[in-house]
């Protein structure tokens, strides 16, 4: 299926959901479940919360079925909801952490989620894990909107117009966000590449 056809297909499915066809909702869920969960996971780096937020995303899609109008690409609309929820969650967490740090001297940051990998030996596994932690930390250190823009650009392969639609800003703002985000990542990840080349 071509990209244009897939876009058209999503909008058609959503219009059918609007008309009460729940099977079309199941198809939409099937098509977008994984990208939405992966996007949220990369944004907040917590699988359980990523799944909870993804559930909320699809719940909102379902709730909005009656008022849905295919004015923008379905994925732009979907990622607008997703980004909105993820950014809200991050903001709430920051507030909560700030509150907790006022109450106690808790250490900054949370332990990164350990994802099982298929490396053959322990040493390689540890090296890879350390490298992955560095990459995660570099992504986590980006300002929220920059992070969302990079995630959509790099992993969802969305164009500037779509990212702008999802973030609710102009295309030039998206370009600027991406430019600054990649610049920060280059600076933060430069030592990793030096380690590899040495």
């Amino acid at each position: 299926m071509s990209v244009a056809a897939a876009i058209e297909h999503d909008a058609q499915l959503m219009l059918r959901v609007r008309d009460g066809d729940t099977a079309s909702f199941a198809l939409l869920l099937e098509r977008h479940r994984v990208p939405v969960i992966h996007f949220v996971y990369r944004m907040i780096q917590n699988q359980a919360v990523a799944e909870e937020l993804a559930q909320e995303v699809f719940l909102r899609v379902y709730r909005s079925r009656a008022t849905y109008e295919p004015t923008a690409k379905f994925t732009t609309w979907l990622f607008r909801i997703t980004t909105h929820l993820a950014l809200n969650w991050i903001r709430d967490q920051k507030n909560e952490r700030r509150q907790q740090s006022l109450d106690s001297e808790a250490p900054e940051g949370t332990a990164p989620l350990q994802v099982a990998d298929g490396v053959p030996n322990v040493e390689q596994g540890m090296l890879r894990s350390a490298r992955l932690d560095e990459i995660r930390r570099a992504i986590q250190a980006l300002p929220d909107k920059q992070r969302a823009a990079v995630m959509m650009h790099k992993y969802e392969e969305m164009d500037y117009t779509q990212i702008a639609g999802a973030l609710g800003c102009s295309e030039s703002a998206v370009k600027s966000l991406l430019f600054r985000a990649y610049e920060s990542l280059r600076a933060r990840l430069a030592h990793l590449n030096r380690g590899v080349s040495e």
């Binding site: 992966h38 990459i135 995660r136 990542l185 990793l192």
Partner: peptide, 8 residues
């Protein structure tokens, strides 16, 4: 480097 952050 970002490719290594594989959520799959």
């Amino acid at each position: 480097a970002l490719d290594e952050f594989d959520a799959s």
